[in-house]
Simulated scan of single mutants.
Amino acid sequence: MKPRTKARTRLVAQRLVGVKWVNPVDAMRAFGLMQGQDQSVFSSIALRSTGDIADVAHALESQEIVRGYPMRGTVFAAPAEDLRWMTELLANPGIERARTTVIDSGGSDSDIDAIRHIVLDKGPVTNAEFKAIVTQVNPEASARILYRTRYLLMVEGTLAYLGRDQRIGPAPTGGSLEEVFNGDRQAAANEIIARYIRTHGPVTLEDIVWWSKLPKKLVQESLRNLPNDIETSGEDYLRAGLIDEAAGSSSSVLRAPHLLPAFDEYILGYKDRLFAMSQETHEHVVPRNMGVFRKPVVVDGVVRGSWRKVGDKLVIEDVAGIPAYAEPGIRRKFRDYPFF
């Protein structure tokens, strides 16, 4: 599949164009996980559903959408009902290794127990309050202990980021791997891989392994048992009917510009990002490839530059030539952008 065709098809799969999900919770359930180390992930959810950040805020307040550390040692947004089993399946490092890193940093099992008890007793706390609790328990605690203890308590299923203010509090109960899949890791892998394919396809085996970090054999077994709404096209896996849906979309819809958050799944959801940009543009969007992302301007599926908000004004850095026809649409997208 040609890069431009792949880019357009992925725009449709992610519902950045075409029919949106009815509400933010449905969007989050469809994706399963969205990379969320930056709270701009809530704007990503809004862009794929109602477009209204107030709807996302409501889902956060009702704790239907939460954030945790389900995979890659990175914060992701997730449906509250799925966070526990996804973390049990995908978290790396897992509980025992995470506990060891706390101990190696100068903490202790008694420190971990005390911090857990105090946070659960006090209810949702801010990051500053969590730091104060860690320091109260261990006055010699380093920043490393602070981060690693918070990670451990989220990976073990005790805590999560909750609510509009994303305080640290009791993680959603239930929905464990045992409860949902009778402890069957393959069945759980089948589910998360199907969600990834539906929302990101066309994707390859390599994309799926890279994204999930699951063992290749587990992924290959999932691909031999795909649900009926997923099909193949060459080496690609995608939602059934997606190619026809993208081909049937009007040119004006596909060519429309998009202002995306810095850590959006359209950029971070694939092993190879060059389907949507040149190497030069990638170096601009991800300077020195150090994990810092600029907010991309996307036109017809292609990243053309980056954007930022300065006061109330839109500032654009044009890297790859933003077509003149896209400029009015870019201004409209900035006016309607769901800032969190």
Rank of each mutant, 00 (worst) to 15 (best):
M1N: 14
R15V: 00
L16M: 05
W21V: 04
V22T: 12
V25N: 00
M28A: 04
G36W: 02
D38V: 09
Q39L: 13
Q39P: 13
V41K: 04
S43T: 10
A46T: 01
A54P: 03
D55S: 13
V56H: 05
H58N: 11
A59Y: 03
L60E: 02
E61A: 12
E64W: 08
P70D: 11
P70Q: 07
P70K: 12
P70V: 09
A78M: 10
T87K: 08
T87Q: 06
L89V: 03
A91E: 06
A91K: 04
N92S: 15
G94P: 09
I95A: 15
E96T: 10
R97T: 14
A98P: 02
A98E: 03
T100R: 14
V102K: 03
G106C: 00
S108T: 11
H117I: 04
P124N: 06
F130A: 12
A132N: 09
I133N: 06
T135L: 07
R144D: 11
T149I: 06
M154P: 00
T158E: 14
T158P: 07
T158A: 14
L159R: 05
A160Q: 01
Y161A: 02
I168T: 03
P172K: 00
L177M: 12
E178C: 03
V180A: 05
V180C: 08
V180R: 11
F181P: 01
N182P: 02
G183M: 01
Q186A: 14
Q186C: 12
A187K: 12
A188V: 03
A189R: 05
N190L: 00
E191L: 07
R195P: 00
R195K: 13
G201P: 02
L205H: 12
L205Q: 10
L214W: 03
L214Q: 02
K216T: 15
V219I: 13
Q220S: 13
L226M: 08
P227Y: 07
D229N: 15
S233I: 07
D236N: 14
Y237A: 01
I243S: 11
G248P: 12
S250N: 15
L260H: 04
P261G: 01
P261E: 01
D264G: 05
Y270A: 15
Y270N: 05
R273N: 04
L274V: 12
A276M: 13
S278I: 08
T281N: 02
V286W: 13
R288V: 10
R288T: 14
N289G: 14
R294D: 13
K295A: 14
K295D: 01
V297P: 03
V299S: 00
S306K: 08
V310P: 06
D312C: 02
K313W: 05
L314I: 01
V315C: 04
I316V: 14
D318A: 05
D318H: 07
A320L: 11
Y325F: 12
A326T: 07
E327R: 09
G329V: 10
I330S: 00
P338R: 08
F340D: 09
